[in-house]
Every structure is written in C-alpha cells, then in structure tokens.
Amino acid sequence: MDALIIEATDETPKVVLDPGNNIFEFSGKSLPEDVTTFYGPVLDWLDAYSESPNSKTVVKFNLVYFNTASSKLILDILFKLEEFYDEGHDISVEWHYQEEDEDMEEAGEEYADLVEMPLELKSYE
C-alpha cells in the first residue's frame, strides 16, 4: 500500500503513514481553518490500511499544539485505530509530549480514557 506523507505547514502537522518503513506518525502543530479537509484523506487512508495492516503498527502522536477542532479529529483517528484493535490487530498508540507541557500530558490522559486500546504516554525533555 502507498504511503501517505504530508509535509508540515504553519498550521498543519507532518503526517507520515508509511507501512513500507513501518512508520506512522503525526508531529507538529494542528490549527487548520478546515479540519475536515485536512484530516479527511488521513481517515480514508486508515480505512484502506485496515484491509491489510502490517503485523504490528505503532502510531506516534508527537504534537506540540492543536486547536479544539483538531482535538475532535484526533479523537476520530483514535477511534478508527481502536476499531483495528477490536478486530484483533496488533496496534498501539504512543502519545509523546514535552515533560514541562502538562496540558499536552493531560490531553494524552484524556484520550487514553476515551479510547479502549493500548495508549502509552511518553515524555521527553
């Protein structure tokens, strides 16, 4: 399956969904005016990936900032990943945040409460 790679901009994160190299990562900021247009292709890609996923998938979120509209779309992505998990696939999420950034840590904890799949919080300095 083809990778989906979107370079970061001032208002959208870098997206790497690359089964060939087994890298799945969202990083940077997310505050697009139109979240549906930006995240639509990501959700579609994940639907297609669920047809024949890798034997193990680790999805990393390494975001420094996202607005409330993006927070809803991140939840939509996590719910989609939860579906793969429910189907029996080996899939997990890593939520990376800067140690000092208590709000980003809290956001990770809230997502961990909202979705029922392995979601690990990892801090960095």
């Binding site: 005016e33 139109d34 979240v35 549906t36 409330t68 509209a69 927070s71 809803k72």
Partner: peptide, 8 residues
C-alpha cells in the same frame, strides 16, 4: 469548521 469546544 468548529467543534463547539472553544469556551470549554
């Protein structure tokens, strides 16, 4: 394009 979560 809003999620209705801003004030909260």
């Amino acid at each position: 394009g809003g999620a209705g979560l801003g004030f909260i």
